[in-house]
Each structure stands twice: as C-alpha cells, then as structure tokens.
Nucleic acid binder design. Structure first.
Lengths: 202, 202
DNA sequence: CTTTTTACTGAACATTGTGTTGATTAACTT
DNA sequence: AAGTTAATCAACACAATGTTCAGTAAAAAG
C-alpha cells in the first residue's frame, strides 16, 4: 500500500536536506541553526517545525533513512564469515555497500567527515557488527548473542570498525578507488592480516 | 621552568571538568550548557568565561590535553610495523596505551561513547595513522608521505581505525579485559587476519 | 472545474542561553 | 601585611528556540 504524500511536503523536505548538505560543507553540523536553514531555503521558520520537532530530530530522520537503506544492503550478504579466502573477483553483494556510499557521497561526506555527526560512525559500526553476530549465530547455531566468546566478539568489533574506518578514509581521499577495489582491498587486509598482505606495486 | 598557577584557577578548572564528566554521563555532550555547568559547579557563569571562550573551547582544551598525553605515549613505540609476529608477552610500550585509556576511563567513556564528541575518535585514529606513516617512512627512507603507495596508506587507515574501534568496544564492555590482554588481542587479529585467528575457548 | 482539504506564510510572543561589562568581595602570592 | 588577581553579582543586549493563530496559496478529491 503506497501512501500518497502531498507534493508540497516532499518538496520542502528534500529542499531542507539539500540546503543542509550545502551549508554543512562549509561549517560543522553543530553550528547550523534552524533559522539559517530556513532562511537559505527561503522557507518560513515555522514551516520547519511542521515537519520536525527540532534540528536534532531533523538529523535523526535523515540518518535513519540512510541507515535503513544501508541495512537492507548488508543484511543480504548473510555469512561474511564463511569465506576465508580473499577474493580477487568480489561477489556483487560485497561491492554494493561501497557503491551505496558513493551514490550518497554528499551525505556521507557531511555526516561521517570532520564536524559531522556524533554517532553515525558508531551506528554504522554497530550495524555491521550485528551482521557478523547474526552470521556467527547462524553458523554455530548459537541462540543468544551473549554466549558468543568474548574474543570472538572483539574480532567482530575490530572488523566492523575497520570497515567503517576504511570507508571514512576512502571518503577523505575523494573516492580514489573504485567500489570493486575497495571490496577487494578490505577482504585482503582483514582475512590475511597485516603480516601477510603484500600489495603489488599498483 | 615551571609556571606557578594560582590555586584558584586550578580549582575551578578541575572542578568544571569533574562536573562535566558527571553531567555527561547522564546526557549527551551537545545538550550541556554553560549555565548548567556552572550552576551544578556552584560557580558564577561569568567565571567560566574568564577561562574559556565558550563551551566549544572548553571541550577543545580538555581533548587536546588528553590527545597530547596519548601522543607522548604512542610516539615512543617507533615501529609497530617491524614486528610481524604476534606476541604473547607484549612489550610494555604496547600495553601502555590501553593502560592510559583505563586510567582516563571517565573521559573516554564520555567523549568516545554515544552522545560523545564529534571528532575525538577521528582525531585519535589520525594520530595512530600518523604513527604508522612515520614508522614506514623511517623504514623505507621515504621522505614525504605522499609517496607512500595508496594501498599501503589504506592498510594504515584500516589498522588505526580498528585500533580505536577495539578500544571503543572495550569501553562499551566496561573494560572486561586487562590492558595486557587487549595488546595481545589486537596484535593477533591485525597480524594474522580473521582467517588465521583461532582463540582458545575461554 | 469547483469544492474541500491542508501545507505554508507572516508576525508576534515568551523563554532560554549567550557573551560581555563594571563594580565589589574574597582569596592567594610575595 | 600589602598588593595582586580570581571569583562574584547583577545587569545588559542579542540571538535562536519553539509555539500560536489568522490569513493565503496550492494541492487533492469530487
């Protein structure tokens, strides 16, 4: 069932997001005000409050939408664990997350970059971490997550944060590698470890 | 030459920090105001502005002091790279960073946890990343950092963010492992990779 | 095309926190 | 004990917030 949303609502909401991403590339998120947002959008300040409880709520909704999309993408690749071999020709599912970040580059640059959001990085990491845990539980038929050995959990936390951190570095370098290369790169490092990785002189 | 600082100055500054860490364990940093800070500290609001330009400056100074201390600790261990073997009996230098985090647990819980600081995680990662780069330059007699192969740089970014992420997870788990165990854990995962790590059942 | 619904506007309002200032008091240093 | 300086108190203008309500414009429904 498709909810029909008033075109005016859609227009102002997307406009506000566009303006936000513009403003946020000049100054940290925390210094952006509702007044500034609506002024540059040419909207009445009151209009903002018809849609959001406050600026915090505005960010939250924006983030949640992206997080949901990201979640839908990564939950497909069920068992990242099984494959112990690093691949040279990555399955599409492993490339997709990087493609998504690239598609939403304006968002990620702002929210994941300096002066960005306090929690997005953590939230992404947590999402990926959960994915690892789910895969582990499926493989070892472990009912509840608390039963997973501590060090195994640390491994997942390690990998998840390395994953997000690598993406952040990728953004910082203005996406100098392709999504495919990123998928290969990550699989190589994380599976082989720093001691066994040797890159051909690219 | 040791600068003698008026005891009153020292008292109010440390008091403000204490109060901050108290308040911040109840609510996100961004919702803490100067008024709230000084009220609960029993200080006049004007006094705050005798010491800091604003709340942002206050956070900045606090962070920078910790970052400097952390920097002093990790710059000692020159070449994390050389050791390709994971160790079971870690050198003191590799344990020290974890000890430091543990000593400053109140600070790190607040600034690195949910509702914490926007940039500290990134700044720590950057600090460690630089350490890797320095070590690499020393080893390969590479004069400037830009000449380091891209994928090598990605490896460093990967490791640095994994390092910080592991610490964050450690904090989240209320420091369930000892600093020594953390040092061992990190060296094992990062050197062997997820494919070759096998933890004894504990 | 007309009617009805509803999103946006404009302006006002009280409230809260900010950053600064100047005179006074209290505490520390020498 | 004298001199210095940090903290206090109260007041100030200022800016952003969140809310309200009557009026207008644009969409959806018939």
């Amino acid at each position: 069932m498709i909810e029909k949303i008033d075109r005016r609502i859609l227009r102002t909401r997307t406009l506000l997001r566009e303006v936000l991403l513009d403003l946020a590339s000049e100054k940290p998120l925390k210094n952006i005000t509702v007044k500034e947002l609506t002024d540059t959008a040419g909207l009445n300040r009151g209009t903002f409050y018809l849609h959001y409880q406050g600026i915090q709520d505005f960010y939250e909704q924006f983030k949640n939408e992206i997080l949901e999309q990201f979640h839908r993408i990564i939950k497909k690749l069920g068992h990242k664990l099984g494959n112990r071999e690093p691949f040279k020709d990555p399955p599409a599912g492993y490339v997709r997350p990087f493609e998504f970040v690239f598609e939403q580059k304006r968002f990620f640059k702002v929210f994941l970059g300096p002066g960005g959001d306090t929690d997005l990085s953590r939230q992404l990491t947590e999402l990926i971490n959960q994915q690892f845990i789910n895969a582990y539980r499926a493989e070892y038929r472990q009912t509840n997550a608390a039963d997973i050995p501590a060090k195994q959990q640390y491994l997942f936390a390690y990998l998840a944060s390395a994953y997000v951190g690598t993406i952040q570095f990728w953004i910082q370098r203005e996406f100098d590698l392709s999504p495919i290369d990123m998928a290969i790169l990550f699989s190589q490092i994380s599976r082989l470890g720093s001691a066994h990785v040797h890159f051909p002189f690219n």
